[in-house]
């Protein structure tokens, strides 16, 4: 999936202007000129310190979201009903971990190692998409995640793939290609429940009711409350506003949910035919920030799983560094 739509950039917003002052004005002008012309910035190219810092933050959070995002669905692999669903789900979750790997590699081109990024994840310094701090309680949750969360992530990732940093854009293009298959399998599994027995339909409706608010949170706070940086938009780090992405998502996917005879738990949800924009009840943004700051139902559990993997795997990584194998024989 899973580019969380929201970049957690508040604490550093003020630094933008100050740090910019330290950049060589000529180089900065040439850099901005390249971006205006639609050129991609590559790892060896000159870039403002703030551009590098924000990109590391963005790509790193995206990578963390992929590997943490593998956990709620991953727990359902062993319970997936039947061979078809089981094989599709393992392949899908494997793709997500693979996306994590691609994205850590892309972030490493900016000068931060994978180990440093994982350490920041475990210490809580670096965040991941908030949506994964909620539990996947039934099989229907897996289909809602596979369809709607993947769909939301695609909206975000397609936007970001038009950004200015070459390695990130190329990783995203590949990721989006795989995501489009995930979306299809999620949709297929969800339709099976929506057109199934009363037990299945009830399970699916319950899952939609629980996931709707996290999905509305996915793209981040409304533009009027979000102090997004003009500079990040100009540098093509942030490619679309939170509200625009949310609107695009609602426009495509709400009709698909409604046409299956399912409801969404928001009586105000409707498209304003005059403005072309969707209207909805304001999700609980206090809850959103509470969950970001560790107060969600699964924050502790998700990080504990990652900590287990890091601690238990330490001897393996150490052994990899101590390679005494003689590579004397040619492979072919």
């Amino acid at each position: 999936m899973y580019g969380g739509g929201y970049i957690f950039d508040e604490p550093n917003r003020k630094q933008l202007r100050e740090e910019q002052l330290h950049d060589d004005p000529e180089k900065l002008a040439a850099f901005e000129d390249r971006i205006t012309k639609g050129e991609k910035i590559e790892p060896g190219d000159w870039m403002p310190a703030e551009y590098r810092r924000q990109l590391i933050r963005l790509i790193e959070q995206h990578a963390h979201s992929e590997i943490i995002g593998a956990l709620p669905e991953g727990t359902w692999i062993t319970r997936a009903p039947g061979f078809k669903r089981k094989l599709a789900l393992i392949a899908k979750v494997q793709d997500e971990v693979g996306h994590g790997q691609l994205l850590y590699n892309a972030a490493e081109t900016l000068g931060k190692t994978r180990e440093a990024m994982i350490n920041d994840l475990l210490s809580g310094k670096s965040k991941y998409s908030n949506v994964f701090n909620y539990p996947a309680m039934t099989w229907a949750d897996v289909t809602v995640i596979g369809f709607l969360i993947d769909a939301a992530a695609i909206v975000n990732q397609v936007a970001n793939s038009k950004g200015s940093y070459g390695p990130y854009c190329r990783a995203l293009e590949r990721i989006c290609y795989e995501e489009s298959f995930h979306l299809k399998q999620g949709h297929d599994a969800l339709i099976e429940l929506a057109t199934g027995t009363p037990v299945q339909k009830a399970m699916l409706q319950d899952a939609l009711n629980r996931w709707w608010q996290p999905i509305m949170h996915f793209f981040g706070p409304p533009d009027k409350a979000s102090h997004h940086s003009e500079k990040l938009m100009q540098w093509k780090v942030k490619m679309a506003s939170n509200d625009d992405m949310r609107n695009q998502f609602l426009d495509t996917y709400v009709p698909k949910i409604w046409e299956l005879g399912l409801s969404l738990p928001d009586p105000l949800l409707r498209k304003n035919t005059g403005t072309g924009r969707w209207e909805y009840s304001d999700p609980d943004w206090d809850l959103f920030f509470k969950v970001i700051n560790g107060g969600g139902p699964c924050n502790q559990e998700r990080l504990q799983v990652r900590k287990w993997a890091e601690t238990e795997g330490r001897w393996v990584r150490k052994a990899l560094m101590n390679n005494t194998e003689r590579k004397a024989m040619p492979v072919a």
Partner: peptide, 25 residues
């Protein structure tokens, strides 16, 4: 498949997923 998300390095996470798919297949 139970190694999903738990591998000592990400590459091994992916490898065990891949083998699990093959075996179930």
């Amino acid at each position: 498949s139970e190694w999903t998300g738990l591998g000592p390095v990400m590459e091994e996470d992916i490898a065990f997923s891949s083998m699990a798919q093959d075996q179930i297949g």
